[in-house]
């Protein structure tokens, strides 16, 4: 199951601080009359690497999309880095510019070059001068190992490369928190590894990360907490070793047996 992770992960900089990065209290969300998220309570500290797992339709993507308000919650509180998410657009924009997000389908801007994808938000949201934004972007593109593709368009890159550009694009905003919404689910097996490697490097530098993923090898190697969701609620959360070796709820056991069975 962990064939994608074949290197030693350096834990020396992964330190969880006392500072709260995200605080979710009694959060509920409905799609029409369908209760997708029920009484979610979750506190994430700075430096935590959290993996959210669960069957499809369990609300895990919806949960992390609530954290930067791509989805609206109808009850409860979400406080991100000290800013409460309400309908106040100023707060929403503030949170969004501090929280990076990586999508399943990359969502790069196809009409802009890789470099322009990376510099767009810094220039227009952070008001960074163009030259400086380009330098920063090149640094991050080097970090995800595709500086030589900077002037190509996303459509000319492979899926794995596109996803790494998407990660670089988020990092260019110097986010405090990174959200990953099934970042490897749309990729060929060969490309999953290159994206996971990038994510591991990010974790090694101490980034606060919440990942919705089915890569259990990644969860074991990197996460400090695994959360299991089912039917819109958090069913179990624990350290990876406890979660995988000693699951408590029957639902978790069933899920793990299905996902690790083959």
């Amino acid at each position: 199951m962990s064939e994608a992770i074949n290197r030693k992960v350096d834990h020396s900089h992964m330190q969880v601080s006392d500072q709260v990065a995200i605080d979710i209290r009694n959060m509920n969300k409905w799609y029409g009359t369908f209760h997708v998220l029920r009484d979610i309570d979750l506190t994430v500290h700075q430096g935590e690497r959290i993996v959210i797992a669960g069957p499809s339709g369990s609300g895990k993507s919806t949960l992390i999309r609530c954290i930067n308000r791509l989805e609206e919650h109808q009850a409860g509180h979400i406080v991100v880095d000290g800013v409460e998410l309400t309908s106040d657009i100023k707060n929403i924009d503030k949170v969004r510019s501090d929280v990076g997000m990586v999508f399943q389908h990359f969502n790069l801007f196809p009409h802009l070059t890789v470099l322009e994808n990376c510099t767009l938000a810094p220039i227009w949201v952070r008001k960074v001068p163009k030259r400086q934004a380009e330098e920063t972007a090149m640094q991050f593109l080097e970090k995800v190992k595709i500086p030589d593709q900077a002037l190509k368009y996303p459509g000319q890159l492979s899926g794995g490369q596109q996803q790494r550009v998407a990660i670089a694009r988020s990092l260019c905003m110097q986010p405090k928190i990174m959200l990953f919404d099934e970042p490897t689910s749309a990729l060929d097996p060969e490309m999953i590894k290159e994206v996971l490697d990038t994510m591991i490097e990010l974790a090694e530098e101490g980034m606060t990360m919440i990942c919705v993923t089915h890569e259990m090898g990644f969860a074991q190697a990197v996460a400090n907490r695994v959360i299991f969701m089912d039917q819109g609620q958090i069913v179990e959360q624990n350290t990876p070793s406890e979660f995988f070796n000693n699951p408590k709820s029957d639902r978790t056991k069933l899920f793990l047996s299905q996902i690790l069975g083959h």
Partner: peptide
Amino acid sequence: PRGQYEAADALGLDYWKAQRL
């Protein structure tokens, strides 16, 4: 695709900037 609007939102672009850019 819906994802283009979401990516623009997630980067913190406001409505007019997202539309224009």
